[in-house]
Design a protein around this nucleic acid. Structure first.
Lengths: 138, 138
DNA sequence: TTAGGTGCAAATGATTTGCAATAAT
DNA sequence: ATTATTGCAAATCATTTGCACCTAA
C-alpha cells in the first residue's frame, strides 16, 4: 500500500521516514498546489504532528529531487504540487481558486528563445490571473 | 525636465514628492526589473535617502496604479519594472541575469482558456528559467 | 487647511539555520 | 555504526503597520 511511496522516496536516495511518506501521499492524493501550512494542516488532521522546519526541508528536498514542482502565484509564499505532465494555472484574483491549464504548447516559443537569445531554456512558469466562473456570476 | 515625471504621477491622483519623482525616474532610466533594495541603493548613490517603508509604499502604489509591473522569479521577493509593452523574461539559473523576451503571442491561448474554463483572463506571467549564453560557455 | 506622505521602530509572515537528540540504513 | 533526519528555538529576510510629524495641493 505505502510501498509505491516508499519506492518513490528510496529512488531519490533520501531515507524513508513516516513524515516523508505522509507528505508524498498528500501530494499524490491532493492534486492541487499546496503551501507548507496546507500540508501541516492536512497532516494534523491525520494526527501526524511534524515540525514546520521538517516540512520545509522535506518539501525543498522533494523539489530538488524533481518529485514535486514549486510555484508562486504573485504571493510571498511557495506552492508545491506533484510533478505531473506539463501544465499551468489560472488563479482567480477574487477567490483565489486555482485551476489547471494544459496543452500550452510553448515548445515553439522555447525553440525561438534558444535560437534568438542563445539561452538554454530548462523550465518555464506560466500563470494566468483573472476571475473564475464562480466569481464572474457575482 | 522632471515635468514628464510630475505629470505621470499627477495623472494617477498621487501627490508629487521628491522621492516619488526619483523612483519614477529610476524606473524610466533603468529598464531592468528591480527590487526594493536595488531602488534604495540607486537612490542612495544619488544622495537621496528615503526610508525603506516609504519605498515599499511608493512601489506598491505605483503598481496598483498601473505605472509599473510586479514580477517574481521564483524568489521570495518582488521585482518591479516599467510598464512597457507586454513581454516576458528569461532568468539565468546560474548568474541570475534577466533577459527580455517579446512577442509571446499568448492571445490565442488566453482566448481558449476563457472559452474552455469560463475564466476571464486579466493578466498572465510567463518566465523562462535556464542558462544564459555567458554561463553556457563556462 | 487638510488629506495624504514620510520616518521610525516595532510587528508580521514565510522561510532558514544551528545544534543536540533520534531514527533509518 | 554511520549518516541522515528531526524538533526546537532562535535567526533571517522581505514586507507591513501604527503613529506622530511633515508637506503638497
Amino acid at each position: 500500500m505505502n510501498n509505491q511511496y516508499r519506492y518513490i522516496i528510496r529512488e531519490t536516495g533520501l531515507k524513508v521516514t513516516p513524515t516523508r511518506l505522509a507528505v508524498i501521499k498528500f501530494f499524490d492524493q491532493t492534486k492541487k498546489p499546496a503551501h507548507v501550512a496546507d500540508i501541516i494542516k492536512a497532516l494534523v488532521s491525520q494526527k501526524i504532528y511534524a515540525d514546520q522546519a521538517t516540512i520545509y526541508r522535506i518539501v525543498e528536498n522533494f523539489y530538488k529531487k524533481g518529485l514535486i514542482n514549486r510555484l508562486q502565484f504573485q504571493k510571498r509564499k511557495f506552492y508545491y504540487e506533484t510533478n505531473r505532465e506539463e501544465h499551468h494555472h489560472a488563479i482567480c484574483n477574487s477567490c483565489g481558486k486555482i485551476e489547471d491549464i494544459s496543452n500550452c504548447s510553448l515548445q515553439r516559443l522555447e525553440k525561438e528563445i534558444e535560437k534568438k537569445h542563445n539561452f538554454k531554456v530548462e523550465s518555464h512558469s506560466l500563470e494566468f490571473f483573472g476571475t473564475c466562473s464562480n466569481c464572474l456570476q457575482k
